[in-house]
Design a protein around this nucleic acid. Structure first.
Lengths: 215, 215
DNA sequence: TCTTTTTTAGCACAGATGTTTCATGATGCC
DNA sequence: GGCATCATGAAACATCTGTGCTAAAAAAGA
């Protein structure tokens, strides 16, 4: 019998090499040869686990997308377990903590966000990625929607908020913040991203005489 | 003397071909040959006006960025000429009209936004575009900042708003909305983008018993 | 040790890309 | 008309890409 290698492990190892190349040099440099080099494998080895380049890219995209959303979902379920804090600060902190998993606040999340952006944009013109992109949209919408529903259950929440509209606004803000923090880290630092997110969530609650994140 | 062709016109014509290719097939397909084909020129002709591919790409990027910001600046200067409306609806409409120039609300702005996104993301790993990207950031910041200052001069504006923080939030929202409207037009329609923008601006004003864009 | 199957490595091909070089065409002034 | 000068076109080169095919290497059972 031959040498047994866990094929799934190998596929994830190759996917990691894809992230590395994309994060450092962009999607255009994610050729099979460059990926193989980054993974420390031969071109033939990579092709042994993925028939096409298209298959490799879709796989890497899905692993990336799932990793991001799983991180957020774990945090989200912790939030949904215990009752929501009644005070303003605790409530904001709980909700922000979940959504922060979607922002590039450290090196790990930053690499994830970069790769995610490149894939999403590529999916616009790459038919092999449209399906994965759709799934990604649904996953993001589910996470943000659930956080928002939690927040709006609080007596502190403003009335007359339309969940779908606010989800659209919040997702837009998260995407835009991610983009800016990824592309212009000098102007959009992690601390600023966290503060911006909290300020936005705060604006969904009833007005407060002493704003939390003012001057 | 030879045939005289306005070199600048020709360069803009080639840049237009770049947009066309990028908008339809993505930045990866914007090769010199594809661009030449889209422009109806021979490869040699394109290279006659641009020494490098890098030069062509930076030129196309700058023209695209300037076009977007010029559109917004024209609208902005019209806003700054006359005194601001005192009523809530008029004020919001004036400010939103300027910022809408940055959103992909019609086919022209949509193509501009797509090309803009692709260039910005590429600039992250393409040294030849970083300078142009920096200029683009400054231009966007200037437009959004001036609109925000106008809005905050109104007696309707909430107090204790920190201009820089709100600019960051607004730019993030605009970028995110653009991204979503470009990538998922089915979920993020122009009307929804316009409404989301207005709802955000409305939230910067003092609370209103009868919200403009409610249910 | 031999066998069998997986894994790895390598070569070769066709296509695309940026770039260089050179030849041809077109044009308007002398 | 001739001709200098720009515009255009085409061919060739080196490089990189994905992919197909083949052979070596490796490992675990017989």
């Amino acid at each position: 019998m031959p040498k047994i290698v866990d094929a799934d492990d190998r596929r994830e190892l190759v996917a990691d090499a894809v992230y590395q190349v994309i994060a450092e040099h962009g999607l255009t440099q994610a050729s099979l040869r460059n990926v193989a080099k980054a993974a420390g494998l031969a071109l033939g080895s990579v092709r042994h686990y993925f028939d096409n380049q298209a298959e490799l890219m879709e796989f890497a995209f899905r692993v990336n997308s799932e990793r991001i959303h799983l991180r957020a979902l774990e945090s989200l379920e912790a939030l949904e377990q215990e009752p929501l804090p009644l005070e303003r600060g605790g409530l904001l902190e709980k909700c922000a903590a979940v959504l922060e998993e979607l922002l590039p606040l450290d090196e790990i999340r930053r690499a994830d966000a970069v790769v995610h952006m490149e894939f999403m944009l590529d999916a616009r013109t790459n038919a092999g990625l449209t399906e994965a992109a759709q799934d990604d949209y649904r996953a993001t919408g589910a996470v943000v929607g659930r956080v928002l529903l939690q927040l709006m259950e609080s007596p502190l929440a403003q009335e007359a908020l339309v969940p779908i509209d606010e989800a659209e606004r919040l997702i837009g803000l998260l995407d835009g913040l991610s983009l800016r923090m990824v592309l212009q880290p000098a102007w959009a630092a992690p601390e600023q991203g966290r503060a911006t997110l909290r300020r936005h969530l705060d604006s969904l609650l009833i007005p407060n005489a002493a704003p939390l994140y003012g001057v």
